[in-house]
Nucleic acid binder design. Structure first.
Lengths: 140, 140
DNA sequence: TTCTCTGCAAACGCTTTGCACGGAT
DNA sequence: ATCCGTGCAAAGCGTTTGCAGAGAA
């Protein structure tokens, strides 16, 4: 546990972000999560550790993290934003039945971008919706 | 112009949607737009033709169109939803400078979906952000 | 001291809901 | 007469903004 805190502090310093308690905890939580938490998820979990925490602070931190490329934002459909400590290019699959979100690799090179010659691409957002393997088996 | 109305009516009937004036106009407007209008765009344009139109009706119609696969919804970032009469799989590029949205073709077969074996995919959402060709030239 | 961070309260913007009127069948 | 579509008003919900007090440098 201390190791993960230390890793978070180190990453924050590398990105020129002062490691406040709130920032460390948010980052640590994201790094240990596999399920792309929402602001609510983050807030509800951390308010136990930091009783004075406010949602505004979580929003402030996540905005800062996005700007500094510490985390990425995942938006699937109408619903609220989700956050991901993995900033590499990858896709997300949301199961319409169980609601789980799965990561998958994307070979960006093979994504033929016909019509985008000489465009400068800063962000890739790729997500799919459907029924995951497990839910499909249940249906049969 | 009449031809495009007739085409809209025909499509609605094929999809088992009763062709009310509002529905015809919304569909027709989407089919003639190349820029993925928002609810506001649609409303502001059509309220000239249909002075009693309300935004709720536009929302109702677009929801129905989505369910019946007449149109698709494009969400880029935090902002409001955009609507597209093209329901085939394709990607969107949003220029962070001029705000324009460009379509591009996606070769879904070549998108390697490592980790999604036996998943049933219903929807593809692919969008990129960056600087478009024209804005890039201006910067130089 | 000065600058930054936090967090309350209020505002905001897009979207949804409840409901009643009116038109179509 | 019944059903469906429309549209007003209000609520809902995630997010942002203004600001003041607390804390770090």
């Amino acid at each position: 546990m201390n190791a993960s805190i230390r890793a978070s502090v180190k990453l924050l310093k590398e990105k020129d972000i002062r490691p406040s308690v709130q920032r460390i905890r948010v980052l640590e939580y994201l790094q240990n999560s596999k399920n792309h938490p929402t602001v609510d998820n983050i807030y509800n979990y951390l308010v136990n550790e930091i009783p004075t925490l406010s949602k505004t602070t979580v929003y402030n931190i996540l905005k800062l993290f996005s700007e500094k490329n510490v985390t990425s934002t995942v938006r699937i459909g109408t619903n609220e934003a989700r956050y991901d400590a993995d900033t590499s290019v990858h896709g997300h699959f949301k199961c319409e039945k169980c609601g789980n979100i799965y990561d998958f690799n994307v070979n960006i090179e093979e994504l033929k971008l016909t019509g985008l010659d000489k465009f400068k691409i800063n962000e890739h957002h790729i997500y799919l919706k459907g029924i995951c393997k497990n839910c499909k088996i249940e249906e049969e």
